[in-house]
Design a protein around this nucleic acid. Sequence first.
DNA 1: CTTGCTGCAAAAGTTTTGCACACGT
DNA 2: ACGTGTGCAAAACTTTTGCAGCAAG
Lengths: 163, 163
Amino acid sequence: MGHTQPAAGDDQMILPMCAIFRRFLKRQGLKFTTERALILEAVLAKPGVFEADELLQEMRAADHRVSKATIYRTLKHLLEAKIISEVLIDSRQAHYRLSFGKEPIGHLVCVETNQIIEFPAAELTDLRDRLCKEHGFEPVSHRFVIYGISPEAQKAEQAEEEK
Amino acid sequence: MGHTQPAAGDDQMILPMCAIFRRFLKRQGLKFTTERALILEAVLAKPGVFEADELLQEMRAADHRVSKATIYRTLKHLLEAKIISEVLIDSRQAHYRLSFGKEPIGHLVCVETNQIIEFPAAELTDLRDRLCKEHGFEPVSHRFVIYGISPEAQKAEQAEEEK
DNA sequence: CTTGCTGCAAAAGTTTTGCACACGT
DNA sequence: ACGTGTGCAAAACTTTTGCAGCAAG
């Protein structure tokens, strides 16, 4: 099961994506800075769901010093540019994922281990559009998250019971 | 239109619901206190989505003095008892809704006005179960939120453009 | 050179926790 | 009586903001 379209996280995507972001920023009268480029690069390197602080730690580790404030500010712009999107896993913290050029997906989250599996969910887009039409809404986006217990956690649970 | 089953928010639901909660607490070796009863009552009075602080303000207004800490602690128990469930609207704050005895639903949120519309989404349960089976997960729950622009906000936008 | 950007530290907002006392069972 | 629960205030955490100096266009 590979990707059905060019993976947006590939190294080859860095330059085109920079161009897209730069264009977006220019349109808003904003500037393309070193920090913003570094953050975008870090985001592109993330295969799945990530958090702001995670990005900060990784960038620090790579000796790319950027402040927390700038990360938060840049994530907002990336969100507006539709390069990333928010995934609402829990209400304690924002979770993001690279979404540009990717199909809409849903997330399957294990409530025990916090493991996150992505699954394609093109059919949800149809459902979304139908519901929006019914209520006179203009669709913007949608989120679908399933919570469950992963096979691994089920096994661990059984082992626990057998004690 | 209308509820297809006994509405869990009715006044008549207060006593049965207290009994359910009380039983749940007893099973966990916990106590059914005045505060917990008052909070459950306030929750039952909420027709839709609510927040912890909203509950606190309303209870204060009704002269039912309960601390913030107790509200948070009780909401956790109500969550565990499956009497309420979390609705992930945004990542800044937890949103809850009474779910006991209600059909699974989805939420349509206006990104401009924050208006929230609930819609029945029984079909999602099937999709959820199918996906869980595919990945060997045991389903626990799911969330489906659609973001869009409400008819009212669309009108306001147009009026803005015409200036 | 003009305007926006960064880092820092402080502020803001929600949720959690430690502790002394009070209350269900 | 015992073990939980409650309120309060402080702590913890994530996210936002004000400001002085810095950098991109």
